[in-house]
Design a protein around this nucleic acid. Structure first.
Length: 351
DNA sequence: TATCCGTGGTC
DNA sequence: TGACCAAGGAT
């Protein structure tokens, strides 16, 4: 091993300053590591922890997940975002059950064939759970390596990524791969952060090109971003009996895919047309609800509940419908703002 | 290949 | 307070 290798220093640093108590580090079975890696995609550790605990309490192994209804998987994902991850996780569990005899595969290409798992996630799962020598290249590793080697191409550029994968592979040691993988991610998450990196505590600062040249703030080079759009949708809160509201399942693709949402219309006028055709138009005098504003990266959503009472069934064309009982809520996937709205309705009902 | 997909935290 | 970001992958 070269004398300037970073792995020994990362391993020593990790032993005293790394994170060792995360829930998915207790039992590093491929299944648990897999679920954690999916949840952690584009999502911070502190956000993931309670979701991971609830998920494991309900789905202890691959078979329990594979046998569960998709609605229940999405229910446990409610509020975590990027819901395609949950749908892919569920499908992959069924593939493992049906085609791999319920055992998580050990070959990189086989793992990468599972939906929702790319090269980096596949490498992380196998490296952390089995110790096999596979490099990873997540956001933390990209930042650490681009700074350490002074890689200054745009971070989303193919040539830059190829360069970083080569570095990631070269730095991965032959032994202690699981700990090394955890160590380089911890370094990126806790010391080599995007803003104000703590180079004084960094074990590889002495040969870090970015630090030597004072370019920590420039690396890694940012990605191009597009302008945000502003969209508005009108939704309708349809209620019947004491505490039931109408939900419609969204298409499997697109935003909030497969989740249950309030009936949505392109504008307030078409929502009113729907109300007059299908429903009694009696607006609830005491049901004035605040508009819910929800911001995404690419657009702002303003939910303006137009409240209507319904005596019997209400049908939404081309959609599955569900009467959601606030008192005994169904275990289905809900978008975060809808979950918040239904929660406030439940409180109002109880008071 | 550029765009899409969520949410909560941070400054 | 609005812009930006965080353990990527699919299309």
């Amino acid at each position: 091993m070269k004398t300037d290798a970073i792995a020994p220093r990362l391993l020593a640093w990790h032993a005293k300053a790394g994170r060792h108590d995360l829930p998915w580090q207790r039992d590093r079975s491929p299944y648990r590591v897999w679920v954690s890696e999916i949840m952690l995609q584009q999502t911070q550790v502190a956000t993931v922890i309670p979701y991971f605990e609830r998920f494991m309490a309900r789905f202890a192994d691959v078979r329990a997940l594979a046998d569960a209804p998709a609605d229940e998987v999405l229910h446990l994902w409610t509020g975590l975002g990027y819901y395609a991850r949950a749908r892919n996780l569920h499908r992959a569990a069924q593939i493992i059950r049906d085609e791999h005899d319920g055992r998580f595969p050990r070959l990189l290409d086989t793992v990468m064939d599972l939906p929702g798992i790319g090269r980096s996630t596949a490498g992380a799962i196998l490296a952390i759970s089995t110790g096999a020598r596979f490099p990873i290249l997540d956001g933390n590793v990209k930042r650490v390596l681009s700074r350490h080697s002074g890689v200054d191409g745009p971070i989303d550029d193919n040539a830059t990524l190829a360069q970083l994968w080569k570095l990631a592979d070269a730095h991965t040691p032959d032994e202690n791969v699981a700990t090394y993988t955890q160590a380089i991610m911890d370094l990126g998450a806790t010391l080599c952060t995007r803003g104000k990196p703590r180079c004084g505590e960094c074990p590889i600062a002495r040969d870090c090109r970015a630090r030597i040249e004072g370019r920590q703030a420039e690396l890694p080079a940012g990605k191009r971003r597009r302008a945000a759009r502003k969209l508005r949708h009108a939704v309708m809160l349809v209620a019947r009996r004491e505490s039931e509201v109408l939900l419609v399942q969204r298409p499997a693709t697109g935003i909030w895919g497969g989740l249950w949402c309030l009936p949505e219309f392109s504008d307030r006028e078409s929502a009113a047309t729907f109300a007059s055709r299908e429903l009694e138009k009696a607006r609830l005098a005491d049901a004035a609800l605040p508009d819910i504003e929800h911001s995404f990266t690419h657009f702002d959503l303003v939910i303006t509940p137009l409240v209507a009472r319904c005596g019997g069934e209400a049908r939404i064309r081309d959609g599955k419908t569900l009467w959601y009982d606030l008192a005994v809520p169904a275990r289905v996937g809900l978008p975060a703002p809808i979950k918040t709205l239904l929660g406030s309705l439940l409180e109002r009902n109880q008071s």
